[in-house]
């Protein structure tokens, strides 16, 4: 069971959280105007990374906040966590 550092509450057991898919998927700004390929990519295309993967988690049984986790899919280790809305590059390292 993962130990996840919630950016708001600190380290908590995985059972308090809910996984919410790949992070940094940007919803097209003018959704109604974008072409089918752009929309389909937003809806369905995900990276399936072998290695460090940025993903969204929600601290469902805690503060209720969505935030981002970088997890290594090879080792299942949490590399770093950071609040939603923060850029991945800026987050590397300590919280």
């Amino acid at each position: 069971m993962l130990l996840i550092e919630c950016p708001h509450c600190g380290p908590r057991a995985e059972i308090e959280f809910r996984y919410s898919g790949e992070a940094h998927m940007v919803r097209p700004a003018a959704a109604a105007a974008c072409d089918d390929a752009t929309w389909a990519a937003y809806l369905y295309l995900r990276d399936n990374v072998r290695g460090e993967h940025a993903e969204r988690w929600r601290h469902t049984h805690g503060c209720g906040q969505f935030f981002n986790v970088v997890r290594d899919t090879l080792t299942d280790r949490v590399v770093t966590t950071y609040p939603a809305g923060h850029a991945r590059s800026a987050a590397g390292g300590e919280i």
């Binding site: 069971m1 993962l2 130990l3 057991a13 299942d76």
Partner: peptide, 8 residues
């Protein structure tokens, strides 16, 4: 009996 991720 079980050694899990996160040293659990």
């Amino acid at each position: 009996y079980h050694y899990g991720i996160g040293n659990l």
